Simulated assay, not measured.
Amino acid sequence: MPLATTRRSGLVDQVIEQMRSAISTSEWKVGERIPTEPELVNALGVGRNTVREAVRALSHAGLLEVRQGDGTFVRATSEFSGAVRRLAGTELRDVLQVRRTLEVEGARLAAAHRTEEELAELTGLLDARDRSMTAKDYDLGVDQDAQFHLAVVRCSHNPLLAELYQGLTEVVRASVASTVSTKPNLATLDHQGLLEAIRAQDTERAAAEAGGFLDELLADLDD
Rank of each mutant, 00 (worst) to 15 (best):
T72Y: 05
T72A: 03
F73C: 08
V74Q: 07
R75K: 14
A76S: 14
T77W: 02
S78D: 08
S78C: 06
E79L: 10
E79Q: 15
F80R: 10
F80H: 08
S81R: 01
S81E: 14
S81I: 06
G82S: 07
A83P: 00
V84S: 01
V84K: 01
V84F: 01
R85S: 08
R85T: 09
L87R: 08
A88H: 04
G89T: 07
T90L: 05
L92C: 04
L92A: 05
L92D: 07
R93A: 13
D94A: 14
D94Q: 09
V95H: 01
L96W: 05
L96E: 02
V98P: 00
V98C: 04
R99I: 11
R100C: 03
V104M: 15
V104R: 11
V104Q: 11
V104D: 04
G106K: 02
R108C: 04
R108A: 06
L109E: 07
L109Y: 04
A111H: 04
A111G: 13
A111M: 07
R114Q: 12
R114D: 05
R114W: 02
T115P: 00
E116K: 14
E117S: 12
L119G: 05
L119H: 08
A120W: 04
A120L: 10
E121C: 00
E121T: 15
G124S: 14
G124M: 08
L125C: 09
L125I: 11
L126M: 10
D127T: 15
A128H: 08
R129A: 09
D130H: 10
S132I: 06
S132N: 13
T134D: 14
A135P: 05
D137G: 02
D137V: 05
D137M: 11
D137Q: 15
G141M: 03
G141N: 05
V142H: 01
D143P: 00
D143G: 01
D145N: 15
D145Q: 13
A146G: 09
H149G: 03
L150Q: 11
A151M: 08
V152P: 00
V152F: 02
V152E: 03
V153H: 01
R154M: 07
R154D: 10
C155K: 02
S156P: 03
N158K: 07
N158A: 13
N158V: 06
N158Q: 13
L160C: 00
L161P: 03
L161W: 03
A162V: 10
A162I: 10
